[in-house]
Simulated assay, not measured.
Amino acid sequence: MALESERREYQFGRLTRESLADSPFQQFELWMQQALESDIKDPTAMCVATVGADGRPWQRMVLLKGFDEHGFVFYTNLGSRKAREIAANSQVSLHFPWVRLDRQVIVGGRAEPLPKTEVLSYFLKRPAESQLGAWASRQSAPISSRQILEAEFQRLKDKFSKGKVPLPDFWGGFRVVPDSIEFWQGGNRRLHDRFYYQLEDGEWGVERLAP
């Protein structure tokens, strides 16, 4: 399949040093709000990249469930590949692909386990079927058929039908504490605008990068 001719111009907007917020968290909040107000599907979706013990990176999409000046929060099965790789190497990268807005944000930092109280607070807010799904799936483990997964879901639905679904002991979350954040705005003639925030001695510095 030849794809050399698949291209377009990026003309959504520009990003200037004068328009940037001093804090990358303020800049991210602005762009996230604009993404939420756009017609992007799943604007909170982000790619989480981890590195295995063999040095090979792996990526997957998850949903951002909160952020502030302390970091970016997501939840997962603690037996999943991502959680196991984070346990061995806490350095991760997040990527927000807001293609419709000709934008992307890349976050580099350290993933820290969330306290159980925070995990429980979020889990109790999930729809009941999402809670059951967390119980039914041993994420990243081999499974022989879809029918087995469906049957386990129904078994758990029957088991917990008369009460609240408890928090699984194998389910948790992480906060990615960033030390670098890049904001990328597509530009025409491939002259994109890129600004890179880096944390040094507790202070955020920013510089423009060549596209």
Rank of each mutant, 00 (worst) to 15 (best):
L3G: 11
L3C: 11
E4M: 11
R17K: 15
D22Q: 15
S23A: 01
E29K: 09
E29T: 09
Q34N: 10
A35D: 08
E37D: 15
S38Y: 08
S38W: 10
S38P: 08
S38Q: 10
D42P: 01
T44L: 12
C47V: 15
T50S: 13
D54A: 13
G55F: 12
R56Q: 11
R56I: 12
P57Y: 05
M61V: 14
V62Y: 08
V62K: 09
L64K: 02
L64Q: 02
F67R: 03
E69Q: 15
V73G: 01
Y75H: 05
L78M: 12
G79I: 00
R81L: 15
S90K: 12
S90Q: 14
V92T: 09
V99Y: 10
V99P: 00
R100I: 07
R103M: 11
Q104G: 08
Q104S: 14
G109D: 12
G109V: 08
G109L: 11
P113K: 07
L114F: 03
P115V: 07
L120R: 09
L120K: 11
L120E: 12
L124R: 15
L132A: 04
W135Q: 00
A136I: 05
S137V: 10
R138K: 14
R138N: 13
F153L: 13
R155W: 02
K162T: 09
G172R: 03
R175K: 15
V176I: 15
P178T: 10
W184F: 05
N188K: 13
D193C: 13
D193I: 14
Y196V: 07
Y196M: 08
Y197W: 12
Y197G: 12
Y197V: 12
E200Y: 07
W204D: 07
L209R: 15
A210L: 12
A210V: 11
P211S: 15
P211A: 15
